[in-house]
């Protein structure tokens, strides 16, 4: 069976500390079997701990980590890395980390990996890590979107911003589910940061958000009874076709008719990851639970529509 290489993404607004975070991670021995695609080698200041230069875009670090710049298209850069790995020209990395530029919408980067006919047979999407500057916060729409799609939030410059409570509350309203780390005070464990298996379980969320951040809000739905997987697919594909750009995030665990173990679904805008057949339920609760982070969509409309598609046996309620 082919082993798929996870592609993790580090995103965050301009000046939010992506490069500083990378500098710390690159020295971590846990990244010894990792290739890192960054915007500019010079920015990371690797000169003092270079082990070897493979070519003008690729260097090997003492930790065993392979560091490369992205020139041109991301897909071409990943294919080049893959080709070199297969030919034994670079160490056989088992994980790929991509640093996005500060203004980038994370969605096209994630989409590249899943849509490219070559990449999708060798790589899979991993974890999205978003850095947030504790001093400047998340004023820009790009920044809000980067927070919404995150699997991990890393709050940077917390030593310069004595009171982060307001910002943390704002982040929790946009993305209630992602673990939040503080880069200044906490040791950042590279393996834990990128370990997709450690993705947070769904937390309790109100069905109706009390104070959404602008038009972005997060809410959860839970429903009793096993659901029809195919009809759920009909509904979700229809929703994402028409409103995909407004569905910043959808994730959940589903009680699927005909299967004992739950199925985890996870989507970012138009892109839905391959559904995961979980080994077991995380707790005693056998209800299907879905978390949405949406921009400008009504939670009640989503609930009503899903209920109509799935039919009457399914009863939905706010996650208690």
């Amino acid at each position: 069976m082919v082993e798929f290489t996870p592609v993790h993404l580090i995103t965050g607004f301009l000046g939010s500390g992506k490069t500083t975070l990378l500098q710390r991670l690159l020295a971590d021995p846990a990244l010894h079997d990792t290739a890192v695609l960054i915007n500019e080698l010079g920015e990371v200041g690797l000169d003092h701990h270079l082990l070897g230069r493979i070519d003008d875009t690729m260097v090997l670090l003492p930790s065993g980590c392979l560091c490369c710049t992205i020139r041109g298209e991301l897909a071409a850069a990943i294919k080049d890395l893959h080709s070199k790995r297969e030919r034994g020209l670079v160490p056989a990395f088992r994980r790929l980390v991509v640093e996005s530029s500060g203004l980038a919408d994370p969605f096209p980067i994630l989409s590249t990996v899943q849509a490219d006919p070559v990449l999708r047979h060798h790589f899979r999407l991993g974890t999205v890590v978003t850095t947030v500057d504790a001093v400047n916060g998340i004023g820009r729409p790009e920044s809000v979107k980067q927070v919404a799609v995150a699997d991990r939030l890393v709050l940077t410059k917390t030593d310069l911003a004595p009171d982060c409570d307001v910002l943390e509350t704002a982040l929790r309203r946009i993305n209630p589910d992602a673990p939040l780390l503080r880069a200044a005070e906490q040791a950042i464990d590279a393996a834990a940061l990128f370990d997709a298996a450690a993705r947070s379980p769904l937390r309790a969320l109100p069905a109706t958000p009390d104070n959404p951040h602008g038009t972005v809000c997060a809410f959860a739905l839970a429903f009793d009874g096993a659901l029809d997987w195919t009809m759920f697919g009909v509904w979700l594909t229809m929703l994402l076709n028409r409103h995909g750009e407004k569905v910043l995030r959808v994730k959940g665990i589903l009680n699927v008719a005909g299967t004992e173990a739950p199925v985890a679904v996870h989507g970012v805008q138009h892109l839905v990851h391959p559904p995961v057949h979980m080994a077991a339920w995380p707790d005693e609760d056998r209800r299907s639970r879905l978390v949405f982070i949406v921009d400008g969509l009504e939670p009640a409309a989503i609930e009503h529509s899903l209920r109509a598609f799935l039919g009457s046996p399914t009863r939905m309620a706010a996650v208690a």
Binding site: M1, V2, F4, V263, P274, P275, V276, H277
Partner: peptide, 9 residues
Amino acid sequence: AAARPGVFT
């Protein structure tokens, strides 16, 4: 989704 370990399909 293509059938592979861990994927529901």
